[in-house]
Design a protein around this nucleic acid. Sequence first.
DNA 1: CTTGCCAACTCGTCTATACGAGTAGCCCTG
DNA 2: CAGGGCTACTCGTATAGACGAGTTGGCAAG
Lengths: 260, 260
Amino acid sequence: MSLPGLLGAVDPTSDRAVFRQIADQLRESIDRGRFKEGEKLPSEAELVEHYGVSRMTVRNSFSILQGEGLVHAEHGKGVFVRPRPPVRRLASDRFARRHREQGKSAFIVEADAAGSHPQVDSLEVKEEKATQDIATRLGSVRRVLARRRRYLLDGRPVEFATSYLPLDIARGTQIAEPNPGPGGIYARLEELGHHLDHFEEEIRARMPAPSEVKTLRLASGVPVIHLIRTAYDTEGRAVEVCDTVMAADAYVLSYQLPAT
Amino acid sequence: MSLPGLLGAVDPTSDRAVFRQIADQLRESIDRGRFKEGEKLPSEAELVEHYGVSRMTVRNSFSILQGEGLVHAEHGKGVFVRPRPPVRRLASDRFARRHREQGKSAFIVEADAAGSHPQVDSLEVKEEKATQDIATRLGSVRRVLARRRRYLLDGRPVEFATSYLPLDIARGTQIAEPNPGPGGIYARLEELGHHLDHFEEEIRARMPAPSEVKTLRLASGVPVIHLIRTAYDTEGRAVEVCDTVMAADAYVLSYQLPAT
DNA sequence: CTTGCCAACTCGTCTATACGAGTAGCCCTG
DNA sequence: CAGGGCTACTCGTATAGACGAGTTGGCAAG
């Protein structure tokens, strides 16, 4: 029962609260690799005994580490060091025309290449009223076609995206079908004469709302990356807005910029 | 003492834990604007009385909302709805040559334009051993010149950045001085014959480490954006790596991409 | 009127206890 | 040997109480 000499003692007279000291020691042990990814930390009861503190104090320490995204608790099993999931790299040229020739979507192609099992679900395509923000970005349209879908890698949801298109562009075209066909909606837009000129991407990071925790099955301590992409055609018109929420621990975004 | 009819009751027999139900009600009240930004929530004691639960239960609810970045507690004062701070937009062309002509740094110019009071502190310029990651990015250099600085807006730290440059480029030049002169180090690099060709930026989001919480004075529930920019010259050599950690609630990154 | 103290209110930390519920392994039963 | 159930262990939720420390405003003393 006595813990291997990994953890020291706490100083109750210290300025630093006891539960913070315990969290500090556990964090350091994790950082130094004394507890490895996926490994189980000592149980609450063990730490209670080791440090001579009450259970709430230990739980308080755990909740700090959870908030930092370092560990996660499993009911009935224990508290574990959170493994770093495989990361998906999004390159800034992922929508370049040359990637649009194939039949499969960028997500599927990339995932296959990385050896993961990709999946897309909760497809929903419907017409709806534009929110204020979407309306502004699309240039004052009232109603839009919304295409919603969720992406999964090896069964884990990693991204939830909604594309909004003006009805006068999308209605009655293949864009309004669940399957937009080879090359995705950007290929269809170009076929319809809306030649794409450039994209604008806005990136934010924040903690997820409860609904996002649910759809992305996020562990506590995992932020989301919120990306809003607007596609403009050669006439300067915004033809699509894509609102994407990604599990931050599953993504690295990568941009290549000219130094002009 | 009785609370204005904003909050309902909880169902102790429900599947959903009582402290979650309380958090839900408070969250909804905040979302609906019944508690406004900066406004004080009912005190722990008031909620204890209103819901007929123990204090730890109420504190548990608050800690959920804190983790979501919705509220923050001030010792001796109360729990407040966290105001959304003014946001700094970083455009992808912020390092274009045309922005480099003036004497002042991009940060100062932008902040002045936005009506904020900018500040730069904890300047440190020194030679040091490159970490494995930096060495790889710079093409296997051993030692580097590191330029560290922290940026503040209206007294609030928002960004902490470190630039790494190969010693054979930077040593003995103005780049190794605390003040790199008009146009910043990119201007100096070009004067030295290292004409910049393009930048590569990698973006991640995660919860901050304790040291980052300290230097950026982050409230709990605020993630950081971690941006690593590598600058390449026209010969394809990496001439600088800039590692930046930003308070996520203070930034929106914006990229303009060709549709090519 | 000003100063300084005190009281009341705030959240922060910690203890002790209790019960519930999920998990996993052992052992007994059939 | 297979199955089922018991038990011990895990974390989850909740109560009640205590003391500490930061903040604020009022009141009393100077």
